[in-house]
Design a protein around this nucleic acid. Structure first.
Lengths: 134, 134
DNA sequence: TAAATTCGCTTGCGTTTTGCAAGTGCAAAT
DNA sequence: ATTTGCACTTGCAAAACGCAAGCGAATTTA
């Protein structure tokens, strides 16, 4: 299944080999907003990812150490997904995507609040989010 | 062909709808390194993009105002592709990808030189690159 | 405690996208 | 006048995607 083949030694290319598709960064986004999600949580988010695609992306991201599975504290039937350090390190990237999008799309009001905070002091925002996610 | 359908109002998702695939950001990368490229230049880069895929991505990026076509000064047979302002604004994002990759992959030596400069003063680097690309 | 429901996936299958090779049409060089 | 270069286009097989249904284990409900 989701095994990685590098197209080149270029760091951009190698990065895209892992999360360069329409869905992976949305999974990362959900984990940055919610800190931890179950399989069902991902399915609920508004872009409506197909369940087989979700499964393959989660596997890919786990194999590449961007996310980890943990057992749910209150049920063996549930699984918790979280970002690893490598995943949390995508935070600056995600923020730059938001800033770019802010310039060229209309932002939903809730995101706007967060972005104001980011614009005030980007590094501080990243630092506090980083702690929050660990 | 490459027409855009938004999956949601989320800025991350909308961004990915434009350049969220394995190839688009490599085209942007080439244009950030070379400032302007011909169709043939893109084909030459080491990831070896298929010509039909290249054509569809160039069209998509142009439709979404990330790149523009210009006529080549010395030949009507050639076409020059350049980044628009919207494309140049992807620079901070590209730099964050590089920084992330720097942490988790081995970097080719030439990129290392650039990254040292970035680490010394990120904003200054972006500012000078910005001017260079216009 | 048996039956129904929840949860995290897997499977099948039709559709779309990708990747490779070959081809086309215009421009420029020979 | 003919060949070469350049920017694509076309055809087709293979892979990835998207949708719906199914499945086994864990949990809840009757």
């Amino acid at each position: 299944m989701g095994n990685l083949k590098k197209r080149s030694e270029c760091p951009i290319s190698s990065s895209l080999d892992i999360w360069g598709d329409k869905w992976s960064l949305l999974i990362v986004r959900d984990l940055m907003i919610s800190k931890q999600c179950t399989y069902g949580d991902f399915l609920k988010s508004e872009e409506k990812i197909a369940t087989n695609i979700l499964a393959s992306r989660l596997q890919m991201l786990e194999e590449n150490d961007v996310i980890t599975k943990q057992e749910h504290p209150e049920s063996k039937a549930k699984v918790l997904y979280k970002l690893t350090q490598k995943g949390i390190d995508l935070l600056p990237l995600m923020i730059e995507i938001n800033l770019w999008a802010d310039k060229y799309f209309t932002m939903p009001p809730e995101r706007r609040v967060m972005l104001e905070e980011v614009k005030k002091d980007k590094d501080a925002f990243i630092a506090s989010k980083r702690i929050e996610l660990l």
